[in-house]
Structure formats: structure tokens, C-alpha cells
Design a protein around this nucleic acid. Structure first.
Length: 474
RNA sequence: CGGGGUGUAGCGCAGCCCGGUUAGCGCGCUUCGUUCGGGACGAAGAGGCCGGUGGUUCAAAUCCACUCACCCCGACCA
């Protein structure tokens, strides 16, 4: 049994911290709110990058890089945007041993620097669309931070696209939130609700924001990705016009979309258990670990020799043979379990004689004897099964803990227990605020697949045409 | 910004009230030996300006003042 990890049932927040630290994903840094991402955590991020990047490329996007420093004046050009971000910006006032003439903001997001650049790139409708993504770090000075979920500096990708028409920008915005949904479900094995944010929750400077919302094991919602239709707001702020086919000068339409290292926190809270991390196979830095078992030197040679033979033509990040002498097998079992490795292959003298190994699955703990013959293919199959099992379990949890409610008193007590609540809302911001103040929950999104349904607002009783998702959130 | 903690070996802690040998314990680490199918054991070692500054005192990890930092919990946010 895993020592040192707080049980989920005792203290979910502490469990999360324990798992991240003991799972060797991250460390605290000397600077408040910042974190060191260790190889076991960064490896997950690399796999997120690799796979998501492919999806971006497949939808026609290219990567570029824009600078970390942004002139302070740029940020002030879009009124709503500056209001949203100013309080959480870090500003560089000195450099080269002297005060700077104009302070430099460390990017909290890159809309302003990018649109000031796009201005120079766009003249004609022939220059459109621009479909650029960048992988970068950003800084937001948050009051309260949590490893991966909310850190002062975090890693993310931000797509910034420019289009000739509103419709085209809308299509892009919608397309990308669906790319996120697909990625979350297929790779993170994390089911999500895709939908539209309320005006109150949308991105500062956007016409509207689409999002994916995931449910953690404690029933709280985690906003896991956002896609914004920026309309002409940034084009107007930065004076980005193009000459259209009809010879008219028009402002460009924009979208932006992003996911961050927060996804790793979501992965932890979606799949982890009381023994530590559980990493979905498709994102595991190390999918398979071999734990050889021996007593004598002869057995050691036999077992290690056989393990090496079995894996001699395997590609490296796929597996590792833990041949450390100083630890007993039992220790190694726990060591790799805490770190979330999906499959463990136990191979001892008995196995060598039977021409088999024992494979243990991280999520279920089940041990299965497997013939050495065709081992690689069997492991691939088991990884695939585990990936699907993780999604199925998470999806079942999402379904079981999604409730349809029409009584406010009932809601108030129920929402504290966690879960998603399908409620009627009139669309009024006052009701939304009241919900937040009185229940500490928020309207997470208006799901795309919400059917037309007439009802009464949970709070004020006025008419509503469809249900929204409300929940407590991270 | 409020509320609560914590700073003593790499990690986790004791010692502090009641000042006084060479500052301890567990884990980890090093070496040797025995072990090895769910967190092994023995022996011998290495490792500290007790968060910082300034006081009080013959004497400070311990008392006083100031200060810095980090963590956790609440209001804002990906």
C-alpha cells in the first residue's frame, strides 16, 4: 500500500498535492506560486504537445513564436482586455541597470503583441486566413496558486487566427473547441462537456468563448480548454484592415484558443487513486516498466538476460527495465505505481521456465500471465484496453454525477456534494451572480447539445429555453 | 488581501515554555555482507553558520524586536 499519500476520502486537496509531489511530477520553486516540472510531469506535457500539435497541423495550422515581453501600452489598447488582465500582469521596469522608458509586461496572453504584428502582415483578402499557433509560457499573478491547476507561470499553446469574415472566424472557433474535446477524450481519457461560456465568464475582449469542462473525482468542474471568437475587437484596437474582393477596406475577424499545463492537473484528478498517479497510456512518458525478480546471481543473469532479449528491438521510451540492485521487487512495484506507469511486467525465474511474464495493470491492479511469445503486441493491446477503460470509468462518473434539478433549495444542498447540475437559467447576469454568491457554484457552460426545452429559471422563475451546466469549479 | 501553519542534515520531525557539555531521532545517502514473486536486515560511515538581521546575557536553536520566505484554507482567474 502506498504510504505517505493522503486518502482521497480524507482530504481531496491534500491527496492531489501528495500525488503530484510523490508521483515525481513537480517540485515547488523558490518563487511563490511557481513550480518546477520534473521529467515525469514534463514527459506528459511533451506527449500532450506532440499529439495536440499533430491535430493542429492536420487542421491547417502552423507554429510560430512571438516574444515574451510586451510594451505596456499594447495591453491597454483593447479596453475590456486591459481591464481583465492588468491586475495580474508582471511588469519589467528596469533592465540593463536603468529604468526602462516604457515598462514591459510579461505576456499574460499574446493577443496584443500578435495583433500588432498581424497589422504588418495583412493587406489583402489574399493574406487571409492566418492560422498560427504558438507553444509558450505565460505569467499571471494569481492570488492563490495550486500545482499545475493555477501557477504564476504556466506553459500552454495559444492559437491566433485571422479571417476575412465573421462566419469564417466563428467556424474556426467552433472547430478548435471540438479539437480540444476530441483530444481530451481520446488522449487524456477525460470526458468533457463542450459549450459556450456565459458573458460573465467569457474571455476579456472576446465576443464569446467556447470551452470544455471536465469533472474531477470530487465532482468539481475543471475548465480544461477555451476557444474565443474575438470578432473585430483586436483588429480595431490595432487597426488591422484588409482590402476585400469588393475593394472595400474591412477589419479582420479573429479567434484565439488555448490549453495549458492545467490539463496535467486534470489528468491527475480524473484518473489518480489512493496509490498515486494513473497516467493514460497514450500520454505516459513510460508506458511499460519491467521489474525483474531474482534471488541468486545466476537467476539475475537468467532473468535480466531474458528481459533484454524480449525487448532487444523495442523502441526506447516505450519501456524500461528496472535492474536496480539495491531495491527489492516489492519496493519497485510501489515506486512505479506512485508514478503512474500504466503496465508493469514482472519477470522471474518461474516465468522464464514457463515462457511467460506477469503483467499488472495500474488502473485495476489486476495481474495477468502473458506468454513471452508476441509480448510486444499483447502489451500494446493491453495499453489500448486500459486507455479505453479509463475513459469509460471517467465517463460513467460524469454521467452518474450529472443531475437535472428544478428546485433551488434542493440545488443548494446538492451542489455542495459536487457534480454537474443541469438547471434552467433565464440568461440574466444578476441571477448568475446570485448563484455564485449563494452557492459558491457557477454556470460552467451552455452545452452545445442542450436541447430546446422551456422551463423556469432556477433562481428567479422567469422563462428559460434550455438548460445550462452549473457546478463548483477549480 | 484576510485566516491558519511552518522555517533545525536531502526529506519528515524532536529539542525551545524552564538559556549551560560535542544539537538529536526516523527515512534517505555511502561502504561491506546477507536478502530479493507487494515498501528487507545487520554492521560501519558521511552529512548542520538551528530562515535572516539586530538586541538581552558570562553564555542563545532556546528569551525579545524586526524582517524574509514558503505552504495550507477563503474572496479573483486557464
Amino acid at each position: 500500500m502506498a504510504k505517505e499519500i493522503t486518502k482521497r476520502s480524507e482530504d481531496y486537496a491534500q491527496w492531489y498535492i501528495d500525488v503530484v509531489l510523490k508521483g515525481d511530477m513537480a517540485d515547488y520553486s523558490p518563487v511563490k506560486g511557481c513550480m518546477v516540472i520534473k521529467p515525469n510531469g514534463y514527459g506528459v506535457w511533451e506527449n500532450i504537445q506532440r499529439n495536440l500539435d499533430r491535430l493542429f497541423k492536420e487542421t491547417g495550422h502552423v507554429n510560430a513564436y512571438f516574444p515574451l515581453f510586451i510594451p505596456e501600452s499594447f495591453l491597454k489598447k483593447e479596453a475590456e482586455h486591459v481591464e481583465g488582465f492588468a491586475p495580474e500582469c508582471a511588469v519589467v521596469t528596469h533592465a540593463g541597470g536603468k529604468p526602462l522608458e516604457e515598462p514591459l509586461v510579461i505576456r499574460p496572453t499574446s493577443e496584443t503583441i500578435i495583433w500588432s504584428t498581424y497589422k504588418n502582415w495583412i493587406n489583402s483578402y489574399r493574406d487571409l486566413p492566418i492560422l498560427i499557433n504558438q507553444w509558450a509560457n505565460v505569467c499571471r499573478w494569481e492570488m492563490r496558486t495550486r500545482l499545475f491547476l493555477r501557477t504564476t507561470e504556466f506553459l500552454w499553446q495559444e492559437g491566433h487566427t485571422a479571417h476575412a469574415t465573421h462566419e469564417e472566424a466563428e467556424e474556426e472557433t467552433f472547430k478548435m473547441v471540438n479539437v480540444y474535446k476530441r483530444f481530451a477524450e481520446e488522449f487524456l481519457a477525460m470526458p468533457v462537456i463542450a459549450g459556450k461560456k456565459t458573458d460573465h465568464e467569457k474571455f476579456a475582449g472576446a465576443l464569446h468563448t467556447y470551452c470544455i469542462e471536465a469533472m474531477m473525482q470530487d465532482g468539481k468542474a475543471l475548465q480544461s480548454g477555451t476557444s474565443h471568437h474575438l470578432g473585430q475587437n483586436f483588429a480595431k484596437a490595432f487597426d488591422v484592415k484588409f482590402q476585400d474582393r469588393d475593394k472595400e477596406l474591412k477589419y479582420v475577424y479573429a479567434s484565439s484558443w488555448g490549453v495549458s499545463t492545467r490539463l496535467i492537473g486534470g489528468m491527475v484528478m480524473c484518473h489518480g487513486d489512493d496509490n498515486g498517479l494513473v497516467i493514460p497510456p497514450k500520454l505516459a512518458p513510460l508506458p511499460v516498466v519491467f521489474v525483474p525478480i531474482w534471488r541468486s546471481d545466476e537467476e539475475r543473469d537468467l532473468v535480466l538476460g531474458r528481459a533484454r532479449e524480449l525487448t532487444c528491438d523495442w523502441d526506447l521510451p516505450f519501456f524500461k527495465i528496472d535492474d536496480r540492485d539495491q531495491y527489492k521487487p516489492g519496493f519497485k512495484f510501489n515506486y512505479w505505481e506512485i508514478r503512474g506507469v500504466p503496465l508493469r511486467v514482472e519477470i522471474g525465474p518461474r516465468d522464464c521456465h514457463n515462457r511467460q511474464v506477469v503483467v499488472a495493470r495500474r488502473d485495476t491492479g489486476t495481474k495477468t500471465p502473458v506468454p513471452m511469445e508476441g509480448l510486444r503486441a499483447t502489451l500494446e493491446r493491453m495499453l489500448d484496453e486500459m486507455q479505453r477503460a479509463l475513459f469509460a470509468a471517467a465517463n460513467e462518473r460524469l454521467e452518474c454525477r450529472t443531475f437535472t434539478l428544478d428546485d433551488y433549495d434542493e440545488y443548494r444542498s446538492a451542489v455542495e456534494e459536487g457534480g454537474f447540475f443541469r438547471i434552467h437559467w433565464c440568461g440574466n447576469e444578476d441571477c448568475e451572480k446570485r448563484l455564485h454568491v449563494e452557492t459558491k457554484s457557477t454556470i460552467r457552460c451552455i452545452p452545445f447539445d442542450a436541447a430546446e426545452e422551456s422551463g423556469k429559471c432556477l433562481l428567479c422563475g422567469r422563462p428559460s429555453t434550455r438548460r445550462v451546466i452549473a457546478a463548483q469549479a477549480y
